[in-house]
């Protein structure tokens, strides 16, 4: 898949997962992989970008005797999901146009 495109899609998947509750690295990697092929290593830069863009923030919470990093979606992240869906609506219109009548 086009790298740029894939990046946007993975980011949207992660944001969507975070609307269901705060999550930590492994959990997000596991759940995102159910939707789109993404490795644990690739997920790190995704989370980093989302954090830098202010679409997620993070906090640490004790778990099993260590501090685990949790990610949380911000209002900007919620907006980003809306923008993603809007963009794909346009793309799917083009898709329907191209697909029509194809064998």
């Amino acid at each position: 898949m086009d790298a740029q495109l894939k990046r946007g899609v993975i980011e949207a998947c992660v944001l969507k997962l975070l609307t269901k509750g705060d999550g930590y690295g492994y959990l997000l990697a596991r759940e995102a992989a159910q939707v789109i092929p993404v490795s644990e290593s690739t997920l790190y830069p995704v989370l980093k970008r989302l954090e830098t863009a202010g679409q997620v923030d993070s906090y640490r919470q004790e778990h099993g005797g260590r501090l685990r990093k949790y990610y949380r979606i911000t209002p900007k992240g919620v907006e980003a999901i809306g923008a993603f869906l809007k963009e794909w609506e346009e793309i799917s219109r083009v898709y329907e146009f191209v697909r029509e009548g194809q064998p």
């Binding site: 894939k6 990046r7 290593s41 830098t52």
Partner: peptide, 25 residues
């Protein structure tokens, strides 16, 4: 090495615009 290069896709992004170099193809 693979892990390191995957991670580098976001290198240098701290505090800058979210425009980072594309992931390696």
């Amino acid at each position: 090495q693979d892990v390191a290069s995957a991670v580098r896709a976001s290198a240098g992004s701290a505090g800058t615009a979210p425009e980072s170099p594309p992931e390696p193809l």
